[in-house]
Design a protein around this nucleic acid. Structure first.
Lengths: 228, 228
DNA sequence: GCAAAAGTGTTGGAGATACACCCATGA
DNA sequence: TCATGGGTGTATCTCCAACACTTTTGC
């Protein structure tokens, strides 16, 4: 009841709608977010921002997010989920822009692919060392981070951040990075194996001067299930 | 990568944005949803729909939902939470309309207030006996129902469906109605009291030919907390 | 006194936690 | 042979589920 009636139009009003995507990946420094920026204009640097773009006239929101991601990062087959819609009328200085935020999870191969690419306008940042972001994009990242952490507790979402074959230690690292706490190795393994959602491939990875680690495979790649 | 490039505009495109609200209340028949419809036009009845309306030019999305609710139901101080944004390009036959869906929870007094009002274009329906709804509104209700059920497990959201003073049996009924299962009285009381989020008022309610029930109060009315 | 809902404790089992040592490998 | 991470089992505790009878009231 705080909006005076005259602020509402009886006729439908037209606004701009965009999608912005928080892309998460696991890097050497922990959890990372993919940022992009426009080239400098008149010598002044543009702020870093989330990948994103305007929704086309007959484009589904999900497709818009997928397409934006493909266009700006070259990656198109990753886990993508709608997060929240941000619509403060003053969030954009020039015009009314409502943004439907998404978040995406990339496996290590994709993280590397993007890092290896010589595009200075797109790069990974550790989530705890991001620069100031465009508009309210920092709020969007914070919300996405919370969602990711929450989903870890009741879904199999973690596998979207891993390669098709992974070791249990790698999986544990994903959990530890997102939850920001050390986990007990034995209890972790018991709990994960009890979920009955991964299986041994029978292969091993030799990786440094120590015993090789058994490789596992997530039974339903690409799918995220609820657990418990 | 399914959207041809020509479907996306380089210049920002303008679309209509609306908010639709799934209003839940507990009635004698269980969980109910508030629906409205426009008056018949040319003798043909309009379909039932969720309360909702277009977002004003400088109106915050949340304010839009609140205001729409106040305008169409006369109720303005209930729990309201953003649910999901629906944006299929073909969801509206005439123009591109993206809707930001919300859900609201009303205490019994509000449910009664609305039921008592002589407005045939706004009424409660048991959630399992709703008529066919306008556009994709049935999908929206289904999603809201799922969200409500999920939140029951990890938040104190149930109190938003109760009066300021309530009995433990009433609270248990709310849980049973939303979860669609009978709960054990003793275990339920233990679990709720262990949350330490309600307190006895010291008063009792005489209500029929049986022992009076103790009345309780939620310690942080209007607020929803995470639990466990 | 009887019908109807309120109120109250104990026990057993499942799942989580805490915890320490041996194994396989490369250097 | 040593440094490094991989891999394993048991005891305890906590939380949840199952379960039945007494109390207070109105009629």
């Amino acid at each position: 009841m705080t909006t005076p009636t005259e602020l509402r139009s009886t006729a439908p009003w037209l606004v701009h709608v965009s999608t912005d995507i928080v892309v998460f990946g696991i890097g050497h420094t922990g959890l990372q977010v993919l940022l992009r920026r426009h080239p400098p204009r008149d010598g002044v640097a543009a702020p870093w921002a989330l990948p994103g773009g305007y929704v086309g006239p007959v484009e589904h929101l999900d497709r818009s997010a997928e397409h934006t991601l493909a266009q700006q990062t070259g990656v198109d087959d990753v886990y993508l989920e709608q997060l929240y819609t941000f619509g403060r009328p003053d969030r954009h200085p020039a015009s009314r822009v409502i943004t439907v935020a998404y978040y995406a999870l990339m496996p290590p191969r994709r993280v590397q692919e993007i890092r290896a690419r010589p595009t200075p306008e797109v790069r990974w940042y550790p989530i705890d060392r991001m620069p100031d972001l465009y508009l309210d994009h920092t709020d969007i990242v914070v919300l996405a981070r919370r969602r990711l952490e929450a989903k870890l507790a009741y879904s199999t979402i973690a596998f979207q951040l891993l390669a098709a074959e992974f070791t249990l230690s790698e999986l544990q690292q994903v959990y530890e990075i997102i939850l920001c706490e050390k986990l007990d190795k034995r209890n972790f393994r018991k709990r994960i194996l009890a979920l009955d959602c991964i299986e041994e491939t029978g292969r091993k990875r030799r990786d440094g001067s120590h015993r090789p680690a058994g490789l596992y495979r997530y039974k339903s790649p690409g799918e995220v299930h609820f657990i418990k």
